[in-house]
């Protein structure tokens, strides 16, 4: 894919079963992700997305007991051979539930916590904190306590804390769920800018494909702990629309509209994944 240099993540036959659970949450996952890719990870609720993310930053198996199998390399090193703190410098993880991630007394201290533990100079820490708070739109909140924040504000602070670590991989687990739509768009844009400027690899778990589809080049779809589709967003949506909609994936409404029109023989082009391409194709047809 564009901008890709080396492999940053490589899983081969990765499996995981939570202790006490009757079935595998991850089953034979094999995937290679290149440095600088923007990957959209989606699939029905409970299919294993968060579990896969927890493997990437070592929360599995270090904090969630269970049986892990297969192999997982991050930046060429097996996650089994690294401590969680080593891994946290490589892989920044914004949790699905932001509240679980915030613990300092003020927003600013929370954002500074990670960099302070990296042994950086004071100026470097200051610079990173200011930059991350700006990028996540939390400057105005800096002296507030995390519990005084609204859900969406907490989510922005969690993101700022991860950005300040400047990891090589950022994993965002349903990052837009608490964000208002415009902020969601802005933050996705900011994350994409970071990726372009710094070659960061971005993995976003999201049910609403329309929110991320514009940035993601690649979509990975999971179901029942397995990867069931993987490819370019436009290709996968066009080729697998019915199967994905059967899985309950939140497909973009323009793609849905197009598939309905196509079924009635009124259009023939490939499914559009964003509004702009649908406008272009429809304008052309309607001008006839």
């Amino acid at each position: 894919m564009a901008g890709t240099q080396g492999e940053i993540i490589a899983a081969r036959g990765l499996g995981f079963q939570y202790a006490g659970s009757a079935s595998k949450a991850l089953d034979d996952i094999s995937i290679v992700i290149g440095q600088g890719e923007f990957v959209l990870l989606t699939g029905p609720s409970g299919c294993g997305k968060t579990t896969l993310c927890r493997c990437l930053n070592g929360l599995i198996p270090n904090f969630h007991p269970g049986e892990i199998s297969g192999e997982l390399l991050v930046d060429g090193v097996s996650v089994a051979a690294e401590t969680t703190s080593e891994l946290s410098r490589k892989v920044g993880y914004v949790f699905q539930n932001p509240e679980n991630q915030l613990f300092a007394l003020t927003v600013e201290k929370d954002v500074a916590f990670g960099p302070e533990n990296l042994g950086l100079t004071r100026e470097e820490i200051r610079g990173r904190v200011d930059w991350a708070m700006e990028a996540a739109g939390t400057v105005a909140l800096k002296d507030l306590a995390p519990y005084e924040l609204s859900g969406g504000q907490q989510q922005r602070v969690a993101l700022a804390g991860v950005l300040a670590m400047k990891p090589s991989v950022i994993v965002l687990d349903e990052p837009t769920s608490f964000l208002d739509p415009r902020t969601a768009e802005e933050i996705m844009g900011a994350v994409d800018d970071l990726r372009r400027e710094n070659g960061i690899t971005v993995i976003v778990v999201e049910h609403r494909l329309d929110l991320v589809g514009r940035y993601a080049e690649r979509i990975v779809v999971m179901d029942h702990g397995r990867i069931v589709a993987d490819g370019k967003v436009e290709d996968v949506l066009d080729a697998e629309f019915d199967r994905l909609s059967g899985l309950g994936i939140g497909l973009p409404k323009v793609s849905l509209l197009w598939s309905l029109l196509k079924r009635d023989g009124l259009v023939s082009e490939r499914l559009p994944t964003h509004v702009e391409s649908a406008v272009k194709m429809l304008s052309q047809r309607l001008s006839n």
């Binding site: 902020t183 329309d210 409404k253």
Partner: peptide, 19 residues
């Protein structure tokens, strides 16, 4: 005003206004 974005269909139809 409320930091929303339009649903995709509203975006589509506002751009197809000329028709």
């Amino acid at each position: 005003k409320a930091s929303l974005v339009k649903p995709q269909m509203a975006k589509l139809f506002s751009q197809l206004g000329g028709f």
